[in-house]
């Protein structure tokens, strides 16, 4: 996802554009979910239960914002999601 720039000036009160993101969360991860397309049955339980909404309905992971909690891997009945060391993807 594209981030927005830091605002040049502050608003004149505490009211500002909704959903304005200037930083990502991907750097928090020590492990990343990796999806095995062959095993995925598109049940979308991972999409549903992700606290961060970082798995799309088409089951692709937004690694800019995934924090690597591992809920998706745990909830995946067919075992299509593996948690892999983030360091290996550096």
């Amino acid at each position: 996802m594209r981030l927005k720039p830091l605002p040049d000036t502050i608003p004149d009160c505490t009211a500002f554009e909704a959903g304005y993101l200037v930083t990502q969360n991907g750097g928090w991860r020590s492990e990343r979910p990796v999806i095995d397309e062959a095993k995925c049955v598109k049940c979308r339980q991972c999409y549903l239960y992700c606290p961060d909404g970082t798995i799309s309905q088409e089951i692709s992971v937004d690694y800019d914002f995934c924090k690597g909690c591992g809920i998706c891997a745990k909830i995946c009945k067919p075992g299509a999601i593996a948690m892999r060391r983030e360091a290996d993807y550096a």
């Binding site: 996802m1 959903g19 993101l21 930083t23 990502q24 969360n25 928090w28 049940c43 979308r44 339980q45 999409y47 549903l48 606290p51 961060d52 909404g53 309905q57 914002f65 924090k67 690597g68 909690c69 591992g70 809920i71």
Partner: peptide
Amino acid sequence: VKNLDSREFFFGHKACAGCGGS
């Protein structure tokens, strides 16, 4: 899950990983 709004309205937040509240 099939017809839930595909848009995310709470996204990019700084909750701890695995947060149930979020």
